[in-house]
Design a protein around this nucleic acid. Structure first.
Lengths: 239, 239
DNA sequence: CGAAATCTTGACCGATCTCAACTTACGTGG
DNA sequence: CCACGTAAGTTGAGATCGGTCAAGATTTCG
């Protein structure tokens, strides 16, 4: 297992009370099959950086040409629609990466990446990463696998937007939260309700109302702002 | 240029009056950089098949484990939402491929692939394709590039569904049609209006109404069922 | 502790879906 | 080649969902 993670290069510079061990060491799925000496090669081309909450990793139209791997914290990827509204695409947690669009296409970034909390990020330059891919085909297979998963998830997401109403999308989202929580009825929303509204393609007002509706119908119970207990998943998903 | 395409393996078995030359030879982007002897190796693991209009290449939940490359004709990829509505994801034209989800994940197919017209399709088995990827890393790079493009397009699509109204989505779609037609104002819808409605996440009724609205506003002119002349693209995109 | 952001609730309105009737286009078989 | 049946497309009326604006409550964070 020792070879299965990358040690972030920056030292424990954070003066705060974070758990240093877990915060600076992260499993990076696309590299976790490499031998130590190969990993060393990867380490050689990695750059690290920390971002404070709200700082931008890259912005739309920018010409960043790196792969970004989140090591600690969380990063939100969002776009601004042609009419100016923000649309949250996904949230990166430790081990997730982004920047692929700028890597494999000539096009510029099509979205924004913004740290949602103090975050450590590893970066690999386009040319270095391409060299790694050429040299170690298994890395490419890992990335292909990740892309395939993301394509599948995005297609599901698109289908929901196109065919389900807000209420249903929210119910499905809650169901997925419960799944990720290994079936526990007590779930914690992984983002603010404002962001969740954006992610679900609705407004905070409507989201608030739907949650209230669910609660009044006895399907869920809102404990705190982000903690919800799911009382009747079946009824929630039925309509 | 000679090495830049694959010759479909089935003979000119169609008794109909199709143009044999163009119908059985197709550029396949993910292989078009290979040397002849490498291409021969690819040919060795390819199987071909023809599908009549309406025939299903694979279906949701099925366990097809092949990559499908369209050689002639067109194939539509769609999903059925949890509530049973059909959502058109994309249309494959010659050179496009699908089946990636079953290739790189354990999961089953999450959608349907259906021939929209008489179509010739090349298939490569999962194991064979993986072997090719390992042996020729450049193929993997091509596929990565294709995936990256598709991810970008899907994110754009998702953002539009989440933030734009039907009218705007339709206008953007028409604009893209014109772009693909190299700027010509005379465009041809690449699918039936029923399918287009599904693709845009609306109903045929609403689509019909919006097109009428555009026409009455003088932005477009509907010549035939599928032929439209764009009179004022700027006004179309403005609101 | 206080300013700013987030969240909630209410009232209203507009976009789009649904249902239904009708027209048009298309493919098949006589 | 035409007739017919089915699917696709159009149009209208009504209902509903969800967005907007506004005000107030609550939380967060410096």
């Amino acid at each position: 297992m020792d070879k299965n993670y990358i040690v972030s290069k920056q030292g424990a510079s954070c003066g705060c009370s974070h758990d240093i061990e877990s915060s600076c060491i992260t499993v990076v799925p696309i590299f976790n099959h490499l031998e130590p000496e190969q990993m060393a090669e990867v380490m050689g081309v990695i750059q690290s950086a920390s971002f404070k909450k709200g700082e931008i990793l890259y912005r739309e139209g920018g010409s960043s040409d790196s792969l970004y791997i989140v090591n600690r914290g969380s990063v939100k990827i969002y776009r601004l629609s042609e009419s100016g509204k923000e649309q949250l695409i996904r949230i990166l947690n430790p081990g997730d990466f982004t920047g692929e669009l700028a890597l494999f296409r000539e096009a510029h970034n099509e979205g924004y990446a913004e740290a949602m909390s103090e975050s450590d990020v590893c970066m690999i330059k386009r040319d270095d990463f391409n060299a790694l891919l050429q040299k170690y085909p298994t890395i490419a297979l890992k990335v292909l696998s990740e892309f395939a998963n993301r394509l599948g998830a995005l297609e599901t997401q698109t289908t929901r937007f196109a065919t389900e109403k807000v209420e249903t999308r929210l119910a499905m989202f809650l169901a997925e939260c419960q799944e990720k929580a290994h079936g526990s009825p007590n779930i914690e929303l992984p983002m603010s309700k404002k962001n969740l509204a954006s992610y679900l393609g609705t407004t905070p007002e409507t989201l608030s109302r739907k949650l209230t509706d669910f609660e009044e119908a006895g399907y869920i119970q809102q404990r705190t702002s982000k903690n919800i207990t799911i009382l009747d998943l079946d009824e929630l998903l039925l309509p």
